[in-house]
Design a protein around this nucleic acid. Structure first.
Lengths: 137, 137
DNA sequence: CATTAAATGCACTGCCATTGCACGTACATA
DNA sequence: TATGTACGTGCAATGGCAGTGCATTTAATG
């Protein structure tokens, strides 16, 4: 896909074959993916490469890392439609304890929080665990 | 302290010497502690014992586990003053990226969230990262 | 084509949660 | 007091997964 290549360039990432494939893969996902998941999808490639690929994507703010409480970091493409600046991941994340999938609820902004005096917030992470729509039927 | 012993019994935990000590230790903490932190404080005892001690405390709902994004689980005594039922940890957690401490902001309840249709919430985790009061001076 | 930087693959380290097993200790019951 | 049983503790080992160092390959540039 030329589209993936274009996107990569847009974020200042050199569009290598591997990176294009990984981007395509992530574009096709409805939920966040773990490194292992990517690994399983590209058995030909090395774990380290994929690891660093995701890191690069993250540094360039093309994907954001999600901590869904499983201890295994997940990654998802950022949604830059709405201009969220550097904090492109300031939305709600939902982790389904049934199917073990983690999805971004980009519609649901994290409500503003008032902290005690002297506390300066820099990043906010909000995670809801439960049963997702799919598993509820 | 007889107090720690009393508390343990109250939660249905047999008050062994080790458990009493761990409880006392946690009572004296202002921030959440990791297993390693407890370990460092009780060099005489075994890591496994402390690990299982914390697990037991958690199962009996005397402490709650906190995921502060560091990948290392932290534990803190639950605040049962306000009756939160099983969800005694439904408050905000703050992780200071400077001193690396994680504290419970029990005053700050997590705001109610409206999820899309079909999504059933069971647990909510909200974490703010930033600079704490202490490190700000 | 030559030079240089970046990307990739391999081997390895290391942290830390978690588990299996054996031994010790408290508690209940006769 | 003896004895059995469940629970607590300690040791050793496993295993998952993040992260790193280094050598090799690939791509970009003049």
């Amino acid at each position: 896909m030329k589209e993936s290549e274009r996107q990569l360039k847009e974020f200042g990432i050199r569009p290598t074959a591997m990176r294009i494939l990984v981007h395509q893969f992530m574009s096709g996902q409805t939920s966040a993916v773990s490194l292992s998941a990517v690994e399983d999808n590209f058995e030909k490639s090395d774990r380290t490469t994929l690891y660093r690929t995701l890191k690069t994507f993250e540094e360039k703010c093309m994907v954001h890392q999600i901590d869904d409480g499983t201890g295994i970091p997940k990654y998802a493409l950022c949604n830059h439609d709405r201009d969220e600046g550097k904090h492109a991941d300031l939305h709600l994340h939902f982790h389904c304890t049934e199917c073990n999938q983690t999805i971004c609820l980009t519609e649901h902004r994290i409500p503003t929080i008032h902290l005690p005096d002297g506390f300066v917030p820099e990043d906010i992470n909000m995670l809801v665990k439960g049963i997702c729509d799919n598993c509820n039927h």
